[in-house]
Amino acid sequence: MIPSYLKDIGKEIHSNKESTKLKIICTCGCDEFKLFRKKKSREYIKLEKEYEEQFIKEFGRGFEMQSDLNGQVFVIKRNIFGKIVKKTEIKKLDIPLFKNFISVKCSSCCREYILFDENIHGYDAVIEKNQESTIVESKHYSDDSQKIEVIVYYNDDNEEENINDLSVAFGRIKIIKITNNKKITYCDFECE
């Protein structure tokens, strides 16, 4: 299955029940692209770091959460005997979640294509029925050009969901860049 938004530029090179591997080729025929990946702003990194450091200090990196019968959520900490020693109510998170966004620009004709927008692509985005694409104010593409391959991984029980476009409901996407015949994983996102 080829994700519908990649149909025009994705040439299938391998496919099985679980995954599809595509080579990205521009509609002009060129297969060399410059890459862009949305980065977190400095302010966001600072905010996220402060929040996470505080959270990890209190509850650890692997943490436990519990909901009561009313659906109220708490983060809890246990001692070595399993007894709850700390319980903090979780309210709405103040920090918006960062959403990944990857696009490419053809080295020859400069057409741009989105390879992955976490807001609208992938299983979680599809079942949450997100409609809004990520807004990127300015894109700074890489200076060097490379060939691109994309692998998308699917689960076989997505049909049960009332999903309009199953091809976009992949569970994982891996983007590989090929430079000097060397394949390097550019990114690997879990989408569920």
């Binding site: 959270f55 990196r61 909901s67 009313n70 983060v75 979780i90 998170l93 879990e190």
Partner: peptide, 20 residues
């Protein structure tokens, strides 16, 4: 690729919709 924040957000939503 997941952060503490994204994990917390995910688990939060799931256990809130499944009380207890």
């Amino acid at each position: 690729t997941q952060t503490v924040l994204s994990q917390q957000n995910k688990i939060n939503a799931m256990i809130a919709s499944n009380p207890g």
